[in-house]
C-alpha cells in the first residue's frame, strides 16, 4: 500500500493538516478530506469554474491543482467570503438582484468576481464578462450575474 502525503495548508485563515494521494486535486481534498463542500465540482477539467478558489491570492480552478502542490499554500474558498455575520457585498448583491438560480455555480462565480474587483474596482460590462468567461452558468443567461457584480463593484467603490 502506498503512503499518502502529509501536508499543511491554510484555508480561509485556518491551518489544516491532511493526508492525500498524489493524484488527488486540491478540489478533492477541500471537499472530501476537509469537508469544505462549498467549492463545487462541475467538470474536473478546468472548463466550468465551479471549483474556483484563490491560491496564494490568485484565482484558480482547484480541480487543476494537485493537493500535493499546496504545502504551505493560502487558499480562499467561499466559506471564507463573509465576515462573521456580514455578507460580502458581492454575496448580498447576488441575493438582492437574483444573481443565482440553482446556485451550483454561485460559489465559483463569487470567488472569481471578488478576484476581479480586487484588481479592477471599476470593470466595464465587457471586462466582467471576459473575466467570468471561465465560469459556466446554465440557469441565468448571465444577465443578473453581471448586474450583481456591477452593483457590488459600485457599492464597494462607494459610488
Amino acid at each position: 500500500m502506498s503512503k499518502k502525503h502529509h501536508l499543511a495548508m491554510n484555508v480561509n485563515g485556518d491551518d489544516y493538516e491532511f493526508l492525500c494521494e498524489t493524484h488527488q486535486s486540491l478540489l478533492d481534498v477541500l471537499r472530501d478530506e476537509l469537508m469544505l463542500t462549498g467549492t463545487k465540482e462541475g467538470c474536473a477539467t478546468g472548463d466550468c469554474g465551479a471549483c474556483s478558489v484563490t491560491l496564494d491570492g490568485r484565482l484558480a480552478c482547484s480541480c487543476l491543482v494537485l493537493a500535493v502542490e499546496c504545502e504551505g499554500a493560502k487558499i480562499g474558498t467561499i466559506e471564507g467570503m463573509a465576515r462573521g455575520d456580514v455578507l460580502h457585498p458581492l454575496q448580498r448583491n447576488f441575493l438582492e438582484l437574483n444573481g443565482l438560480q440553482c446556485g451550483i455555480c454561485t460559489p465559483g462565480i463569487l470567488i472569481a468576481a471578488r478576484s476581479l474587483l480586487e484588481r479592477n474596482p471599476d470593470p466595464s460590462e465587457t471586462e466582467i464578462r471576459y473575466w467570468l468567461a471561465g465560469n459556466l452558468c446554465r440557469c441565468t443567461g448571465y444577465d443578473k450575474i453581471i448586474r450583481s457584480v456591477q452593483a457590488a463593484a459600485k457599492e464597494m467603490r462607494g459610488a
Binding site: 471537499r31 467570503m81 447576488f94 441575493l95 437574483n98 446556485g103 460559489p107
Partner: peptide, 23 residues
Amino acid sequence: TSPVKHDGFDKVTGRAKFAADFF
C-alpha cells in the same frame, strides 16, 4: 415584489447541500 430568496443565503455562502455534498 422580488424579495431575497430564503434558499439563497446558503447558496452564496457555500452551505447549500447539493447531491455530492452528502457524506
